[in-house]
């Protein structure tokens, strides 16, 4: 299962990476490298573009053509690059703050343009690099350094947003389902047009700590707890009528939308 070799695609001299213990982002990178390998992508014609944030740091560890840009703007660089040299496979890695707050406008326009890019948005519901501020994906009630009393705003459903904006391929994966990521990412890359993948990842260091969600292992379990079918099953169940807290919002994974570009 792990038979697909990915280590030769790593800039080994850059490791260990700067991400915190238990951060799920590394799982995504591994899946991305496996997916790229399974597609037999021409490594000289594949460019990985990222913005600013923990997730965007991932490109630095890929032994390939990598571009670490400014906060929120990775998609703009990617758009220019892809249009200037269409033979390139351009894959963007962004985060929730990077891709939905400061870069939200670029995301919806990239989706609307349907340029043949693949965008992985790693959603850990927080600004990790800056110390755990509320991201636009943080659920109402989420504790962060900027929402000490709990977030009061509604959160983005990034996939719904991408669909509405016109992306021709929209999928959601989770770090707790790493092998599913391989397939989703590979399909996203293979898709002609703008492919958007939201990947539930975890920030144990800030979001997990502030919201008492545990560390990496528990946060991975929490993701699976949130899986649509699990969530629906548990919500439908009779309890003893006690004061059990409401669970987190459900997480629907898989390809959510696909149309020819």
């Amino acid at each position: 299962m792990t038979g697909i070799e990915y280590r030769d695609r790593l800039r080994r001299q850059m490791l260990p990476h700067i991400l915190c213990p238990g951060c799920g982002h590394g799982i995504v990178l591994k899946a991305l490298l496996r997916a790229a390998r399974s597609l037999e992508l021409d490594w000289d014609r594949t460019v990985f573009v990222a913005g600013i944030g923990c997730s965007s740091r991932l490109v630095g560890y890929i032994d390939g053509c990598t571009l670490h840009t400014t906060h929120g703007r990775a998609l703009t660089f990617a758009t220019g690059m892809k249009l200037a040299r269409p033979e390139l496979t351009v894959i963007v890695i962004t985060g929730d703050g990077d891709g939905l707050a400061i870069g939200g406008n670029h995301l919806i326009h990239a989706a609307r343009r349907d340029v043949d890019l693949t965008c992985l948005l790693l959603n850990n519901e927080t600004y990790g690099m800056t110390g755990g501020q509320a991201a636009p994906t943080a659920e109402p009630g989420a504790i962060s350094t900027t929402t000490p009393g709990g977030a009061r705003e509604r959160s983005f459903d990034a996939c719904a947003l991408a669909v509405a904006a016109g992306a021709s391929f929209v999928a959601r994966g989770a770090t707790s389902l790493p092998l599913e990521l391989d397939g989703l990412i590979a399909r996203g890359i293979a898709h002609r047009g703008f492919s958007f993948l939201e990947i539930a990842s975890d920030c144990p260091e800030y979001f997990g700590r502030y919201n008492q969600l545990g560390r990496g292992p528990e946060m991975l379990q929490l993701q699976r707890r949130r899986l649509d079918e699990v969530d629906r099953t548990l919500r439908a169940k009779r309890s003893l009528g006690s004061r059990r807290a409401e669970g987190p919002p459900p997480l629907r994974t898989g390809v959510l939308h696909e149309r020819p570009a």
């Binding site: 389902l177 092998l179 599913e180 989703l184 379990q221 899986l227 079918e229 699990v230 629906r232 994974t253």
Partner: peptide, 26 residues
């Protein structure tokens, strides 16, 4: 149908019998 195994499974292989077991779109 307690859904506990589904929370351990790293490949989302455990699904409700009426769910996507038949129509696996992935």
């Amino acid at each position: 149908g307690c859904a506990v195994c589904a929370q351990l499974c790293p490949t989302e292989a455990m699904v409700p019998l009426t769910g996507t077991a038949a129509g696996d779109g992935r």
